[in-house]
């Protein structure tokens, strides 16, 4: 009879050497805001492109005293967010939460929580495409050179062409911005609504791209300027006259939900954790 094999992993899945390398990369990233630092992205138990970059950052930082929140486009309950949470729970003693104000580490895909991040919190982004210049230059060797020489006329030209063609800049999510007046960076596909939250924030923002093997960071109190022409200023999405159907809020990022049967349109908070808290507050007299 085969003996029952019990697989034991290191604390937080990654071996200590890997975690150290990722933390060291993170330190370099913090030192040069917006600069993409290459790192040896590890094989993870989820597929590349499914949040491995963010997950590796989370695992390299997490300890027993931490409280983790994982969100997927604002949602705490999506399959991906739940699986990542379960994985972290299975190899650490860290607590998990859906309350962004209780969490010390928040791993996120494509949203920033509505409640501003505090100095004792770290927000970790899952990044699909870390290179903002990829849309104008296909070669990595060239984009590195363009960043080094701060030659950003190519990406500006793209914005100009957008204005000529559509009368406005048509980039919705992943809007490029300039960090610390030096590097243009991709904020991951967060809506434009979330981009100003990166400017002079109290907390630390880390970006991990597992497939592209890059880590970058926006440290607290960093200047973040979305690219915009003088006469075509940067604009965020707005939801004038719309309210969340669950919590009634009118000052949050709303998702549009379409009911096929009735043909009705609803609006609902994208940040489910925050929405739930507001609902509770509304129901307690």
């Amino acid at each position: 009879m085969q003996p029952h094999l019990k697989q034991t992993y290191n604390y937080a899945f990654l071996d200590e050497g890997s975690k150290k390398e990722i933390r060291r990369t993170t330190l370099k990233a913090v030192a040069i805001p917006g600069y993409q630092v290459p790192f040896a992205s590890r094989e993870m138990p989820i597929g590349r492109g499914w949040g491995t970059g963010g997950l590796q950052l989370t695992l390299s930082l997490i300890g027993d005293q931490d409280c983790l929140k994982v969100i997927d486009q604002g949602n705490d309950d999506s399959v991906n967010a739940v699986s990542i949470k379960k994985l972290v729970q299975s190899c650490t003693e860290a607590e998990v939460t859906t309350d962004s104000e209780r969490a010390t580490l928040i791993q996120t895909r494509h949203r920033i929580p509505e409640v501003p991040i505090r100095a004792d919190q770290i927000l970790i982004f899952q990044v699909p495409l870390p290179e903002p210049l990829r849309m104008v230059e296909a070669k990595e060797r060239k984009t590195k050179q363009l960043h080094a020489e701060m030659d950003y006329s190519g990406i500006w030209l793209r914005l100009y062409e957008d204005i000529v063609k559509w009368g406005k800049i048509s980039i919705g999510a992943d809007y490029p911005a300039l960090a610390h007046k030096r590097h243009i960076f991709a904020p991951s596909p967060i809506p434009r609504y979330d981009l100003p939250k990166l400017n002079h924030a109290d907390g630390l923002f880390l970006f991990g791209a597992g497939r592209e093997k890059k880590i970058y960071a926006i440290p607290p109190y960093t200047d973040i300027e979305p690219l915009a022409f003088d006469d075509y200023p940067f604009e965020t999405e707005h939801f004038d006259g719309c309210n969340c159907r669950l919590c009634g809020s009118s000052d949050t990022f709303l998702d549009e939900i379409f009911d096929e049967k009735t043909g009705q349109k609803f609006y609902q908070c994208s940040d489910t954790g925050n929405c739930r808290k507001r609902q509770e507050k509304r129901h307690t007299p």
């Binding site: 030659d151 500006w156 100009y160 204005i163 022409f229």
Partner: peptide, 11 residues
């Protein structure tokens, strides 16, 4: 492109 490279950011 040339104008932007020389610092004109007004469409």
């Amino acid at each position: 492109e040339k104008l932007i490279a020389a610092g004109t950011f007004n469409v």
